[in-house]
Design a protein around this nucleic acid. Structure first.
Lengths: 164, 164
DNA sequence: GCAATATCGTTTCACTTGCAACGAGTGTCA
DNA sequence: TGACACTCGTTGCAAGTGAAACGATATTGC
């Protein structure tokens, strides 16, 4: 025996497997039924909180590369779920906001997504849930202090509710 | 306010963000320094445990689609890290195993990967670490009972060490 | 023995992805 | 004012991805 390295016990691998499995399950709520991709879903959800934002802000807030946001927004606009208008104050920026159809779609999807989350958490007590989040937060903290790790979007930090 | 849905507090999203961040950090150990992709890394690591396996078995064990395994193995063979030979017992199967160069590469990478894992876990006590894994396992259990969720590879279950 | 079925690894094809480059607009400072 | 550096959102391009189809081999049922 040369290396005794068990992939199944390697934390990064375990996280990846669990995350992917969870993502796939949740995606059924918005992909299968409503034809949304993950980036589109994230953009819509973010808009429901921030009302009118630029591509850059979305990029900074929901962990998506800039081109990905741009393309997701383009598709969402083509389907009539969001509006894009050139900002008046700064003509480089685009003001993106939900249309009425976008709001309606979210009204339908969000409860499903929350139901899946509730189902996932059904095996955990309230204390367990908090412990899990706290442990995950501690892993983040290690990465926050690591210069070679990717930086975390400020919105995902525990503090206040972002801009404006 | 219509929906009050906070993406940053949505467990599936949090898992995805953490997992991606961790993956990127770990990937530095094998990507930046040794030019490996994630699938290639998983294949190599799996081979270090199972010595001689088919594409199908790798696919079943390390959470990679079949074509992805096939292509990863092809690249690894092209670079001389693995050997591919047609199986004698069943001519449809391919026996894949590490070359000496493959072993050497793993000897170099595995300690780096473990070091990153250790660093990640540095903020957690031994008890914390066990609790985290146990909580993750409980999320898996919920999905195991959900017919609409993806099935989990048997190797990632807590039990025995797979075949052969 | 032989057709029908199943399984293996590979490949095809359409699509997504990330990086880098781009044009357009804004700020800055002489 | 004008040149320079910067930021915005988008797009080109090469690489990666998953679903389905493929040829080749094995197995099953008759």
């Amino acid at each position: 025996m040369r290396d005794q390295f068990n992939l199944s016990e390697f934390l990064p691998y375990r996280l990846a497997v669990l995350s992917e499995r969870v993502s796939k399950r949740v995606a059924l709520a918005y992909s299968e039924s409503h034809g949304l991709t993950v980036p589109e879903w994230r953009v819509l959800v973010h808009l429901s909180r921030c009302r009118q934002v630029s591509v850059r802000e979305i990029h900074n807030c929901v962990n998506l590369e800039k081109p990905r946001v741009s393309r997701a927004v383009a598709r969402l606009e083509a389907v009539g779920l969001v509006d894009k208008t050139e900002s008046q104050r700064d003509h480089r920026l685009v003001d993106i906001s939900l249309t009425e159809a976008g709001w309606k779609l979210l009204d339908a999807i969000v409860p499903e997504a929350l139901a899946v989350e509730q189902q996932l958490l059904s095996g955990l007590s309230e204390g367990d849930r908090e412990r899990l989040l706290e442990l995950m937060e501690r892993l983040h903290s290690v990465l926050d202090a690591d210069p070679r790790a990717a930086t975390r979007s400020r919105m995902d930090l525990g503090d206040s509710d972002g801009p404006a």
